[in-house]
């Protein structure tokens, strides 16, 4: 089992001096994921907070080979890098024993929305790569617009709450399930507050034969509107309310990695962030009820899938 003390002494592949916000969750995620393989690594990063805040020329926070080409194509860009690796190996221009890992990275906008097609195509073709979506539920880099990962009832600048609107009126797209439907060897959902779980999942993803996908909850104090020191508590709350279940699907078999002893009401989650503040007006009570129902339904469904998977 990995120890934090040992991880802390590994070389950073993402370093200090990046421009992400105070209390941002992105570095916490990648600090762990980038340590889950010791092989050389090449990253393709979609446009978004991570990309912008790490590469403001002439500075870069990347201490690893990295490319950005556009917003919607991290998956097809890394697929191209991987294809060239295979080609040059076949042609004997890269030593046969040289191992390189390939990683595509995007936010929820770059993954659930505009990049979904490229991601679907790249995993369907079976490129050997890991894709990590850091899901902060919003287009954060451009100032807080809705994505298909923005939850029901959250206020986003393109789905704002107002006297006639309770915020976003649609629920979240279930991206992890979409990726499971591609029948790839490994899909998992993780969160930064359980670093060991995140580390294990990243390791499994890097070691999978074929494409692997991780969906990681990403704290965003700026857009979620909470005291930035409280982020890890929020991640815990997301798991305890089952708003963000931690689970993995290995070759089609579901396993829940964290079951709260006592499922907490989503109310606690909603109260913790400014983006849900308007839900506490009387006329929006039904939204809170609906959110609870949706979370209960999804959790129930997931529990059943895990139960079926555990049968021999």
């Amino acid at each position: 089992m990995a120890k934090l003390k040992d991880l802390a002494q590994m070389e950073d592949r993402l370093v200090a001096g990046h421009g992400m916000c105070l209390g941002c969750g992105i570095p916490l995620i990648f600090k762990i994921i980038l340590r889950a393989t010791e092989d050389p690594l090449i990253i393709a990063n979609a446009t978004g907070c991570l990309e912008v805040c790490t590469t403001i020329f002439p500075r870069t926070a990347w201490n690893v080979s990295w490319i950005h080409s556009a917003f919607e194509n991290a998956a097809s860009t890394i697929a191209g890098v991987e294809a060239m690796y295979k080609a040059l190996k076949n042609k004997g221009k890269i030593p046969a024993d040289k191992k390189i890992k390939f990683l595509g990275v995007g936010g929820d906008g770059g993954t659930y929305d505009i990049g979904l097609q490229a991601l679907s195509g790249a995993v369907e073709r079976g490129h050997e790569f890991v894709y990590v979506c850091y899901d902060n539920n919003v287009y954060a880099n451009t100032g807080g617009q809705r994505s298909s990962a923005t939850p029901l009832g959250a206020s986003a600048t393109t789905a704002p709450s107002g006297s006639k609107s309770p915020g976003k009126i649609q629920g979240r797209k279930d991206l992890a399930q979409i990726m499971v439907a591609h029948k790839i060897p490994y899909v998992a959902q993780a969160s930064p507050h359980r670093w060991q779980d995140l580390y294990n999942k990243a390791k499994k993803a890097f070691e999978a034969v074929g494409p692997a996908f991780l969906n990681v909850l990403c704290l965003c104090p700026t857009e979620w509107k909470y005291d930035e020191s409280k982020g890890i508590k929020l991640a815990q709350l997301a798991a305890d309310t089952c708003v963000w279940p931690l689970y993995e699907v290995e070759n089609g078999r579901y396993k829940i990695n964290y079951k709260p002893k006592q499922k907490k009401p989503v109310l606690e989650w909603l109260e913790s962030q400014g983006r849900f503040r308007h839900l506490f007006k009387e006329e929006n009570a039904w939204i809170i009820e609906k959110i609870q129902q949706d979370v209960d339904r999804d959790w129930e469904w997931l529990t059943r899938l895990a139960e079926i998977s555990s049968r021999p």
Binding site: A16, H18, P58, T60
Partner: peptide, 11 residues
């Protein structure tokens, strides 16, 4: 950018 990790100059 050929200077890997040079963001450390950004305090």
């Amino acid at each position: 950018n050929l200077q890997a990790g040079n963001s450390v100059s950004n305090l």
